[in-house]
Design a protein around this nucleic acid. Sequence first.
RNA 1: CGGGGCGUAGCUCAGCCUGGUUAGAGUGCUGCCUUUGGGAGGCAGAAGUCGCGAGUUCGAAUCUCGCCGCCCCGACCA
Length: 557
Amino acid sequence: MLARASELFLPTLREPPSDAEAASHKLLVRGGFIRQVGAGLWTFLPLGWRVHQKVIQIIREEINAIGGQEMLCPVLTPAELWELSGRITIPQVFRLKDRTGRDFVLGFTHEETMAFHARELQSYKQLPQVWYHFSTKARDEPRPRGGLLRVREFIMKDSYSFDRDFEGLDKSFDKHKQAYDKIFERCGLEVHFVEAESGIMGGKESSGYLAPTGSGENTLIRCENGDYFADYDAARGIPRAPGFPPRLEAPTEIETPDATTIESLAALLGIDPASTSKAMPVVAGDRVVLALVRGDDRLSEEKLVTALGVAYRPATDAEIRDTFGAGGGSIGPVGAKVDVVADDTLREGQFVAGANRDGWHLRGVEAGRDYEPRFADIRQANAGDACPNCGGKLEAQTAIELGHIFKLGTFYSEPFGAKFVDEDGQENPIVMGSYGIGPARTMAAIVEQHHDDRGIEWPAAVAPYDVHIVVIPGQEEHAESIATSLSVAGLDVLVDDRDARAGEKFADADLIGCPVRVTVGRKVAEDGTVDVRERAEGEDKAVSVSELVSTVRERLG
RNA sequence: CGGGGCGUAGCUCAGCCUGGUUAGAGUGCUGCCUUUGGGAGGCAGAAGUCGCGAGUUCGAAUCUCGCCGCCCCGACCA
């Protein structure tokens, strides 16, 4: 395949758009891969679409390899489907009406539609199934950002597995996991599989794939020794041990005027903030619950939801005073007539806690002796915590979530009545899983991980073209025949035949980032050689035209 | 949805505070000359509803109000 720069719509820019911050945003726009149409709405220009298609093809091959069957569901779906699952109430749902006033939803995933089709599965003999499609998703995002990192409309590969039981689901899940590992590896990405929250998807267990990058919205917690990776929200770090004051036989009141923050309290008492406890009153359902973490820790909202099993909200000032008889900065677990969920770090030792009396705290408060909590892991892990596997130091790194896989169970099949009959003639709900990957995000992550100050360094598997030929003015005829021979050999070739200076062409070639560059200059007429350079390496090497095809193939790996 | 910022040529921006001929620069674009292995130089040229609407004024890119769009932080979130 041969493309000529003189004919391509390839609008490269010398400067990045003023509103771009992420490297992928800047370089994809500058390189003429994408253009913004509105907030979170992007057009893929010819080169960008080629890369997107290459990513899609890799995903397709790997999902086909685990038995996935490609199909295509509509973007526009009747609102009734979303009422059945209950997801109609999610704020991000794009809703609209047709001319007769009927309600529709622009899908943001396709669990509902796929469960609808799964009603045609009737027998255990038809299971398992894996169905997938590449389709456009719409999300009414409150805040799109970062180029392709967070958008309102995007193409997603989502596959759905249908099994007769949870054992089957585990197998389908593992197959996808393996497929995803291969996909990201083929894309040249460093990606880590981590536990994550189910969020709006519904279902039991979910896991994300995080690519560490320079820009992104997620945080990857990783051990310096490389044996532990986790999503920030779910990470389990081991905090340092506090410096405890001498042990007390019983809690002792101490006056702490104006000390309503941990910092002021620790300073006033001259103690380690880690030897205090922090009380966060929340309302779950119709009851008040006191969440207790160490003074130097932050409460993880996600972990607390998991521990409580339901969503919650912070208690209001009035509710706090009503329940504890004191203000927010002076409350504690001792004597409080509410359930207490204490973080595991509070199991051992004596801590300073609020006395449920304005301006007073208690020293020497001990779990088990002075209050009866339920223990759970509800603290947010921090960089600097010790690794739960090896004790090494945990680090935090910005990341992009490229994929998310869920064990949905019967969350959708039950309301949709997607059932099958087993060997004994019994009806059972189909057990589902869902598995998403965003090709555009993947593309952005590749740029984040593969670029330098001059431009992109595409891995060969996803590059828009294999070879970028820079034609030095005066060598057009030689270049044309070289381009043709590379193309005939099965390589994708971009030949820069524009009437432009060499420097400009080199700069564009670096920006666009095809893996191999061939410069056809004066030497081709003198000794029959051209210069071959790998984008990621930056060294020109003279290669005779007769060996060019094999050399380029070799360089592409 | 809360806070902040921006909107002037394809792109990056100046001009606005302190209203006043025909609205500027760099880059990009077109033509010609020169040049030709890392965005070279020269000459000539095209290109702007100054986001939209109202208002104040003899006069508005500039002042006031409203709206819209976009970006950043937060909240929210695959």
